[in-house]
Design a protein around this nucleic acid. Structure first.
Lengths: 336, 336
DNA sequence: CTGTTAGCGCATTCAC
DNA sequence: GTGAATGCGCTAACAG
């Protein structure tokens, strides 16, 4: 399991280590002849430059960290196993790899013992970080924002970092307009309890209703991505016997939970009760009835994050900013 | 963005670099007093050990590679955005991080130019590799198996590596027994065209049918995870007007595609045609009708992979082996 | 118990 | 054009 180094090549070729290094890196001040000789020798010896050594010398690792809420409990649908985040990550991964960066999951452990995300990133000298989803109520997550290198987050704002998010205001008000104009008379808007973007969404909903003079807007609280809460809210709402009700969830998983309640109650969607989701995950469009929802553009989000992070990492004069990505309404069978 | 080093601590404390190193690593041959002094100084100065430098010295990076089929096309459901693989990865990630290892995605690019997975792993000096899903028909994937350090794959066998897989034989024959005993008279078994485990599954199906003296077993070819092929096969099968037919797919996505065809054809499941999947992804259990399928234990698979890989990385006498994980039948609404 | 020395693999001055 | 020397930050022999 021995790895050949430039020293080996130096010995075998007779040239000095520095000449070998230059030849391998295609420096102009080494003759073509020697360059060819050394390069083919390196190849034949099975030489692979050590990224580790190179990084130590040059200061950057070409590794970027990815932070995902890492729930392992069955009930946690967030993180890797959430289709939407997986799509964003996939898009981001593709872009970063095309620019020579590797993705590393940021963990809060180092060598068997707890240490925190920040310490971990510093130790591993990550060149930048993408926070896809995390619980910012936890100190361990918030302290990470002090990292000396570029950070970009999805759906979270902080002066120290850059942000990419969907145009939540436009999305909510667009969908709400749609719902109101189709004659639904009671709208229940479910918001995730502890999210930063909650306010943005609530505001958009309120504003849009005011604009239309629509009075019957109610708010419900539910945990983000909780099928259980979706189920509960549909059951509770159905029991109230409202006239032409429509429940708007802020994520598709909750909406799917709601659809289960609908089946259990044997009521008709959207006649007796309409349901709207948020995210546009593939599953929602595969099942029957097809979910009416707001589609976030996971591909564009991943690309925007990659592009901005690359700029931040390579150009220190680049400023942090908030980037907003447009959304699309998907009118399915659960509300039309 | 300056990072404090042990040299800085050495200067400020007056102790030598090596004493500082020892104190920081809790060596026994340094006095408690000095240890405390240096450790608290390090903390106050904001010192974080450089994993890069440490790795250069010690030879291992505590980074393990993860290879996933990296499709970015919309039609690619494999890789990260495939629920099942995401679950396996999540379980694996949790275990590895608890043992101080970080997960890195293995890409085929290095510094902006193509280079191949093997070169990449060698350059980055990854301590081990987990191949979750990959196209082994590609030379670039097969050459990776020559890597000098431990490799473990899901669902792929090779003498150079270790393997974790579900008990496909048991799963297929178990499900087939179930289907036959429930009185289905014509069974269409769909196999993925180019998978190594195809043979194992076909063999199990054939054997089980022979055992029961069941004659009407037909084989169909479809691409793995192709909803389109699932759709097509259901349409074609329905047109044949077989008596009490049951289609067994080897993955849930194909089965979901089949269910769409069923809806479009307005036929009844499972009365007119029964459908069975494979994988047990959450989606299949969320929608209506609930998919009858074989559940692969993603959590156990991730754990088994982690455990074995850890052994291989830490104990050079550890041998490669094939580890088989039991499966579970989920009897849903699409075949009972 | 502490310090000196050397070296992991590489890139980059600066001489020649 | 080429090579000798230095250092990135750290650990581990070995001496004292």
């Amino acid at each position: 399991m021995y790895m050949v180094t430039i020293t080996d090549i130096s010995k075998k070729s007779g040239y000095s280590v520095s000449t070998v290094s230059k030849a391998l890196n295609n420096y102009s001040d080494v003759s073509e002849k020697v360059k060819d000789e050394i390069q083919s020798l390196a190849k034949s010896m099975g030489y692979y430059p050590s990224a580790v050594a190179r990084n130590l010398k040059l200061g950057n690792t070409y590794n970027v960290g990815v932070l995902l809420y890492d729930g392992v409990e069955e009930k946690d649908k967030l993180g890797l196993t959430h289709c939407f985040f997986a799509e964003v990550l996939n898009s981001f991964k593709y872009q970063m790899e095309n620019h020579g960066y590797d993705l590393v999951f940021v963990s809060d452990k180092i060598g068997d013992l707890e240490s925190g995300y920040l310490t971990h990133c510093r130790s591993k000298r990550l060149d930048g970080i993408f926070i896809i989803c995390a619980d910012f109520n936890k100190p361990i997550v918030r302290e990470l924002l002090d990292y000396e290198k570029p950070i970009i987050a999805f759906d979270y704002l902080d002066p120290r970092i850059s942000t990419v998010m969907s145009d939540n205001g436009q999305a909510i008000s667009g969908m709400l307009r749609e719902v109101i104009s189709r004659g639904y008379e009671n709208i229940i808007f479910c918001c995730d309890v502890e999210s930063l973007i909650r306010n943005e969404r609530v505001q958009a909903a309120t504003d849009t209703c005011n604009e239309y003079g629509f009075k019957n807007l109610y708010f419900e609280n539910g945990k983000y991505c909780s099928m259980e809460d979706g189920y509960r809210i549909v059951k509770e709402t159905a029991a109230k016997n409202l006239k032409r009700p429509c429940i708007m969830f802020t994520d598709d998983y909750a909406a799917l939970g709601g659809l289960q309640a609908v089946r259990d109650l044997h009521i008709n969607v959207p006649q007796d009760l309409a349901i709207v989701g948020f995210d546009g995950i593939k599953v929602g469009q595969m099942l029957y009835p097809k979910l009416t929802t707001v589609q976030q553009d996971s591909k564009a989000i991943g690309e925007a994050v990659a592009q901005k992070l690359l700029k931040l990492m390579t150009d220190s004069s680049e400023k942090n900013e908030k980037i907003v990505i447009p959304t699309k309404l998907l009118i399915g069978d659960t509300c039309y």
